[in-house]
């Protein structure tokens, strides 16, 4: 082998070793900077993919929709004048809604999903809220029905966007309790690699030999101060138990509809003491 090739190989290996020895914080900061710079491409790609899906419909259907939309625009312009008069009233209602939100959590931010990651084993989505909106790493993300979607991950956070690790990913683990009973506890996690394809999650029970009724609702558990997910949020419903050799597991259907997820809420502040459990929501509740 030529001398020049050996030098190139040595330089390559040295650079690789340097990369491997970077601290997780440095890597997260590096990734965050890169994603901040790359996020316009991610946003455009997300929008383009949405357009591609729309374009697959027959031309006649699109033209009909265009006609309907034109009519709707006309009606909306007319209604806009009335809405202007009702603006002050809407503001009052907004304040009331904010109050309602604050009564359960200290603060929530509505966010739209702008991109789903398909080229990775990880189940993540990108939302249109970031550091500028007060988002930080590890903030829990829920649906309007109080069902868990996932959490904001370090490294994927930019000024205007954030990456959310979905509940269907194996690495998104949620301490849970089953039903209202605090005695049945376990850990909910997704599948490895196929979280993007099959929205199923597993519940690994803490104790063995426990009978789990199908249809039992799984909630987030209280595991102490500093936990990521506030206790009492909806996780899913038990589909069937899966007995294992050392641990009992159950297949759980998430209550968040991951295939049609568009709008989510990031809980920026739980507004509750760690020891207290908020009123348990039921499937169908809205914040």
């Amino acid at each position: 082998m030529k001398q020049f090739n050996i030098i190139a190989l040595l330089v390559f290996v040295s650079a690789l070793v340097w990369i491997f020895f970077l601290s997780p914080e440095s890597v997260a900061a590096m990734r965050s900077t890169f994603m901040g710079w790359f996020s316009p491409v991610v946003k455009v790609a997300g929008a383009a993919q949405g357009e591609l899906i729309e374009d697959q419909r027959p031309r006649g259907e699109i033209l009909t929709e265009l006609k309907n939309l034109k009519e709707e625009v006309f009606n909306l312009r007319f209604q806009q004048r009335e809405f202007a008069q009702l603006e002050s009233r809407i503001q009052e209602l907004r304040d009331a809604l904010q109050f309602s939100q604050d009564s359960k959590f200290g603060g929530t931010i509505a966010a739209q999903i702008i991109k789903r990651t398909s080229t990775s084993w990880w189940s993540t989505v990108t939302i249109n809220r970031g550091k500028d909106h007060g988002l930080t790493k590890d903030l829990p993300v829920i649906t309007e029905d109080y069902a868990i979607v996932g959490k904001v991950i370090a490294g994927g956070l930019t000024d205007t966007t954030a990456e959310v690790l979905l509940l269907t990913d194996e690495q998104c683990r949620v301490a849970s309790r089953i039903g209202r009973s605090a005695s049945l506890r376990g850990l909910v996690h997704g599948h490895r690699g196929i979280g993007n394809l099959r929205p199923e999650i597993h519940l690994t029970l803490k104790d063995k030999g426990v009978t789990l009724p199908a249809g039992a609702v799984v909630y987030t558990d209280d595991i102490g101060a500093g936990q990521v997910y506030p206790p009492g949020l909806l996780v899913g419903k038990v589909v069937r138990p899966i007995p294992g050799e050392n641990v009992d597991r159950a297949l759980v259907e998430p209550l968040a509809d991951f295939t049609n997820l568009k709008l989510v809420f990031v809980i920026t502040s739980t507004g509750i003491e760690s020891a207290s459990v908020p009123p348990t929501p039921q499937p169908g509740d809205r914040p």
């Binding site: 997780p24 890597v27 890169f34 991950i153 490294g155």
Partner: peptide, 10 residues
């Protein structure tokens, strides 16, 4: 940089 996910940093 694009596809590795950092979980649990914090």
């Amino acid at each position: 940089l694009r596809y590795s996910v950092m979980v649990g940093v914090g």
